[in-house]
């Protein structure tokens, strides 16, 4: 496995460059198809509103996957991820016309032995945190 970030060059507290990912309805439709989660709250506005939601919302696992992409893009190798967990704390509302954006940032929370580090991730939509306790343990080069 070739992570591109070197353990010796990373310090606790270091901030990763933030990223912004656009989310549109088509992304949720594609995710529904790929994941097999066809819950209509993720693609049918009338249904979402009928169950009290403000609009169509993203799959939690779609949002988690974006946070995963953030980590694997930074570390350079998806195989470097040894532990990845999140708590879903808020909805990602995806309006029909403009979609929304996920703003993701990360900090090196801890350096462990064996070239492992723990990243603490922050994921926001419309300024609100949508994931909490989002952490990834990755093995660096």
């Amino acid at each position: 496995m070739t992570a591109q970030v070197k353990y010796d060059e990373i310090e606790e507290g270091a901030a990763l460059p933030p990223q912004t990912y656009k989310v549109d309805r088509i992304d949720l439709v594609k995710y529904a198809g790929a994941s097999g989660d066809f819950n209509p709250i993720h693609w049918r506005e009338s249904f979402a509103k009928s169950v009290g939601l403000p609009d169509v919302i993203a799959h939690g696992m779609y949002t988690m996957a974006q946070a995963g992409k953030y980590v694997t893009d930074w570390v350079g190798d998806p195989g470097a991820v040894v532990d990845f967990g999140v708590r879903f704390s808020g909805m990602v509302v995806v309006p029909d016309d403009a979609g929304t954006e996920l703003e993701i940032s990360g900090v090196v929370e801890k350096k462990l032995d064996d070239n492992l580090i723990v990243l603490a991730l922050t994921t926001r939509a419309q300024g609100e945190k949508v994931l909490t306790r989002a952490k990834a343990t990755v093995r660096l080069a």
Partner: peptide, 16 residues
Amino acid sequence: FAMVVHGEQRFVYERP
């Protein structure tokens, strides 16, 4: 199930 939301998710890998 009408009241269920996904609360937490975690994957711990032995290998990819």
